[in-house]
Design a protein around this nucleic acid. Structure first.
Lengths: 200, 200
DNA sequence: TGCAAATTAACCTCTGCGGTATACTTTGAC
DNA sequence: GTCAAAGTATACCGCAGAGGTTAATTTGCA
């Protein structure tokens, strides 16, 4: 592996770690350089200034996390055998993503810089949950057992019901137990089915 | 009105405004003092340091917006005549709170300081949405037209369905139109009723 | 192997902010 | 009206961090 891109990757990884841990203002370029095991000058060699460093690191971290999010969709079979079971499995995967510390830290970081960088928010929404909703809508629309007028809205309802409570407690000091987690997701999915299943 | 408490109130109001606009780190005590029309020394006279100033201002701002949130519950009648209509009215009020710029700014501020002040998050949750959920659960449990096993969970489902999409777009540059807003809330409430109404 | 580009370490400067000190003025309760 | 408590203006200190400079060194590639 060539030297230059390796340095750049190390810088972005370190920057993501420090920015996520400290927030934009509290993060220092010195610490990032030290963590990347690189001279500060090298950082400024790759990225013009702290701002550019932040945006690039955020972008990279988002891509990484978002891949997991979209991968959850593979959990959802094209032709579900046991619909409730499959939906619960998918809902767990989806809700589980929201518990990932990197995800919650990224959300917080985005939130705190939302005023200065509104494009971060819209990009996150469109490429993240918005994308998940669109893809999920496509799949739900094909399930004949469901009566769905507006697939995108139904997808949102599914996401809301399966993840609301988990997100609610995601920032809590002590995470919900596996039992609470499963119950929250399971009950959410069951409510979704009562609202959308033809014979429920 | 006596002078001293008036100064204190002015300081807290100014602090809230600046902290909400700039975030903790970017906010400067100088600006807060100027906005409160007060000498910097006076600020430090009332609050020990920037940290205490922040916590006090946050607390005050939270109490203010949270009162609106809890007031939304009054929208919900003890004995609903037209359940769907009443639920939609309540849902709109609830979702509307999430569009208030001060509310979104407060959430962002809490988010960005969550690591340093986890107690802010749990206090927010317990006294805010958690409280709403508990009170709403109480009311929902009394509505005989609904089949509800776990009232608190049902309350969460109601909150999720009626506010998810609005919160989803709350940080968007251009707010959703009234039509979109009403449709999102209305469809959410209808889904809730399909899931919980005895004869649906 | 040689050379050009990248990297490094060690400074340096400049700015902004938290917090304090001083010396003076205002305010309000008795 | 007095006088102590509170407020004000201004200057100041210390510190931390962004970003630049330089000169020496390493690295990758022809």
């Amino acid at each position: 592996m060539p030297g230059r891109p390796r340095k750049r990757a190390a810088i972005l990884r370190a920057a993501a770690e420090v920015f996520l841990r400290e927030g934009y203002e509290r993060a220092s370029v010195d610490e990032i350089a030290a963590l990347a095991d690189v001279a500060k000058r090298t950082v400024y060699n790759h990225l013009a200034d702290k701002e550019a460093l932040f945006l690039a690191a955020f972008e990279a971290a988002f891509d990484r996390v978002n891949a997991d999010m979209l991968a959850a969709l593979d959990e959802f079979p094209d032709d579900p055998g046991d619909l409730e079971h499959d939906l619960i499995a998918f809902g767990r995967k989806l809700a589980g993503c929201h518990l990932d510390p990197e995800v919650t830290a990224l959300r917080q970081l985005m939130s705190s810089e939302a005023t200065r960088h509104p494009e971060l928010v819209s990009s996150w929404r469109d490429r993240g949950p918005g994308r998940v909703a669109a893809l999920l809508a496509e799949r739900l629309g094909k399930v004949t057992a469901l009566r769905i007028d507006d697939p995108v809205r139904a997808a949102h309802h599914f996401m809301a019901l399966s993840t609301y409570e988990v997100q609610f407690r995601a920032t809590d000091a002590r995470k919900p137990s596996a039992k609470q987690f499963d119950a929250a997701v399971g009950d959410g999915v069951k409510a979704f089915l009562r609202a959308y299943d033809r014979h429920a």
